[in-house]
Structures are given as C-alpha cells and as structure tokens.
Design a protein around this nucleic acid. Structure first.
Lengths: 227, 227
DNA sequence: TTTATGAGTTGATCGAAATCAAACAGCCCC
DNA sequence: GGGGCTGTTTGATTTCGATCAACTCATAAA
C-alpha cells in the first residue's frame, strides 16, 4: 500500500542532506524540494517493476530499498541496496523512460519522488542541477563497478570482510557495529545465498570477527584486511 | 608509447558521432572538440592506473580499451570493454580526481582526451553539456548494473549466448558476425577464464552456434534465446 | 503453556567454473 | 621449411558456492 503526501519538516531535513541535494545551494535545493512528493511503502511492497514506464526517480528518506533484476525463470539478483540519503533509478532520465529493474521496500520505507520530466526541465535551466545529478550518477556507477570487481575477484568470506571494513572507523583496530538490515538482505547485496553468508561469518571467526544477531564485533581490523 | 596530437578530420568525424557529443548541438560539440587532444597507444599500453591522479577522461576513436581492477595479489578483473564512440572514466569528474581502476589498450587505440577541469567549467556554463555527460554516465551505469545481474543470474554459456544475441540483427532468425576483438578479451568482459569461454562456445553448438576463428554463425536465434 | 511463523544456522550433496597442464593452430620471422 | 611466439582448445582435477533438507532460536499469537 502506498500513501503519497507532501514532505514534513523532518523529511525535508533528511532530503536536504542527501547526496544529491546537498551538492546544491540551499536556494536551488529548496526549489527542487518544492516539487517532491513522498511515498510511503510497507515492508516488501513493490516500488516499481522492470518494464514499467518510469515517471519518477527516488531518494530514500528512511528504510532500505532493494533493487533487483527478475529473470525469466523467476529468480532474483540484487544489484543494489539503497538507504537514507541515497538516490536510485536516476538512470531512467536518459534510457527511454522505462525501468530496467525491479525495486522493492526491504522494510517500511519513505521515499522522496522526483518527477522525471520536471527534473529534466530544471536541469536544462540550471547547470548546477545537472552537475548534482551527475555526482549522484557517478557515485552509483562507481559502486556498481566496484561490485563487479568485488564479485569477480573475491570469495564469499572476502566480500563479507570488505563489507565489514567499510563499516569500521578507519583508524581503530577493534570495532563494533550493528547491521542496518537483515542478513538475508546483506547476502543478496553481496551476491550470496543466505547460507553462504552464514558460512562466511563462521570463516571470519578465525580473523577475530564475532556475530551476535545483528551486532558485528571486529577484534583485529588489520587481520581482516589481509583475509 | 603515447603520442599526443590534435585531431585530424577523420577523428573529428568519429568524435562528433560519439554517444557523448552526438547529444549536443553541433556548435556546442565543436566548442568542446576544440579542447580535445588525441592520444595514441600501442597494444597493451597502460592508459592509466588505479590510484593515479585523473586529469582526463576519454572517448575511444579507434580500437578497444580494457578497464579493470587490479587486486592486491596481482589478479585482474575486467569491469568494461570500450570501443569506438564510447566514453569511459567520466566518473573521475566527481570522485575526488583519482582513478579507481586501471585502463589498458587491448590493441592499438586512438583516444580523445577531455580535460576534467575544462569540462567541469564547460558543464557549469552550459546545461546541455551536463545533460550529455549524464546521458553517458547513465549509459555506463546501466551497462554495469546489467553486468552484475548477468553475472549473478546466468551461467557461462548463457552469458555468451546473451552477448551473441546483442550482436545479432533483431528480426532475422539466422545470422553471422565477426568478433571485434580477441576471444580472451571477450572472456574477461564476461567474467570468465578463456578456457571457460571456449567450453561455453562448445556448449552452444547444440543451439546452432558455430565458431570459426572470430566468425560466429548463429543457425537459430530463437533457440539461442531460450538457452 | 502450546503453537505457529520467520530468520538464521548447520549438514550433505551437487554442479559450474577456476586452475593446472598439455596439446594444437596460426602466424611472423629468419 | 623449421623455429618460436601467441592465442585457443582440450583434458583432469579441485574448489567454491548453490541447493536441498533438517534443525535451532526467537518472537508473536492462540
């Protein structure tokens, strides 16, 4: 079930700090925010499906969104998980206006929706808007390329180690953090079956990683880097 | 060995028809072309290396370029092969000015080089330039996401079948084309070892595909789609 | 307290592709 | 023609992760 609303104050705050809009002067950002609508989705709602006409692209305000390809035989492959402040599906502004992937709320989410036509119009008037969109596209492109390289070079435990390291403060040698979403979602993001993720965590015990529910504890960050 | 030159007439033609510049009015495109330099590389020359400062991004004029991640232990994973008219490494305009991947000429290539600073300046003055760059980024993003999905959903023979189908005319039921580059390069692009590509071609014989050197013949396009 | 439900783990098996090794084909050069 | 050199193929083996199935654990519902 979707509810569409205008932004409240808190949502506006989040949006202005998002990767996309934070690149802009506040005057410009506010002009865009004025044309944004909010969509709320319950857990596991479809947001859009591949093949559908694309009228919007999105920035996540709260929750996590799973973007995936659905194959002919019904299997799904995740191509990205997007959280608060991240923008997804901006590609539809240039690829003929059709979604090439499916998107689904992993849990209850609120999304800011940008109208494609409106944003195109804005971008054609103000170079700064195009540049901010480029930065967002570029960020997502880098992540996708990183993902391809990671898939092709590293084993399951190594990919999990990488993910953990991305969530550690840079300098400390021991750390602890909480997974922001379900393990099954992380598995998909890393291109693994849930069983493989579980086994990968086991394998990382020897490198000083311990897992209690969603809490990950890292005993020795350097050991993990060399795994 | 690199030689840097100004564009000749033929190269200018190719460049104006490239995915990036063809999005622009010819006046705007010509203004950009005026600031482009040409770099020629022999086969297997490094073009840039990951970690290097990035002063340029590129459009291929002739030949093919291989972009890849080099891992700590010296293995390489391709993240893209770029041919005539395609633009690569535009991401460096926004990711802090450092190359995150290596690029190498697969064979003798000529490249058009755009100065990052100059292009940023142009983009901040003329919205159309930003939009053209976005289209290029968007194209490369789509390809990268497609690649992730393909890797994760399909077996080696299926990925090869997909590649072949992309090179077939849409309607005909039998077709024939010539690989534009070495099989080992194709293997890398598809995330396969050369041996696996070879075996994948063998597996596709049963679907009516025959291979003689670089010539690929497809007997039954529909059979290939259902492989 | 039971029962149900969903997430996660553990075990056993299977399959796809990497790896290692060797044979083979084309091609340029002497 | 013979000798490299490179690219490709074929064969044997191994490894990683998917898959299927059973089981644990926690939480919610009855």
């Amino acid at each position: 079930m979707i509810k569409v609303l205008k932004l409240n104050v808190r949502e506006k705050e989040i949006l202005l700090r998002s990767y996309f809009l934070s690149e802009l002067t506040s005057a410009t950002a506010l002009k865009i925010v004025d044309h944004v609508t909010v969509a709320s989705h319950e857990a596991r709602d479809p947001i859009f499906k591949q093949g559908e006409k694309a009228d919007y692209f999105y920035t996540v305000l709260t929750g996590f969104v799973r973007v995936f390809r659905l194959s002919k035989d019904g299997r799904e492959a995740d191509i990205g998980i997007y959280g608060p402040g991240e923008t997804f599906a901006e590609g539809v502004m240039f690829n003929g206006g059709t979604h090439r992937f499916c998107a689904q709320s992993a849990e209850a989410v609120t999304l800011a929706r940008y109208e494609v036509d409106k944003l195109k119009q804005f971008a054609s008037q103000d170079p700064a808007i195009g540049i901010a969109l480029m930065a967002s596209l570029s960020r997502n492109l880098d992540q996708a390329l990183e993902c391809v390289a990671d898939d092709r070079l590293h084993t399951a435990p190594q990919r999990v180690a990488n993910f953990i390291l991305q969530n550690c403060p840079e300098n400390a040698n021991s750390a602890r953090f909480r997974l922001p979403f379900q393990k099954s979602l992380l598995a998909g993001k890393l291109g693994l079956a849930p069983e493989a993720l579980s086994r990968a965590f086991s394998a990382l015990k020897s490198a000083g990683v311990s897992v209690h529910g969603r809490i990950i504890e890292i005993g020795d960050v350097n050991a993990l880097k060399n795994f």
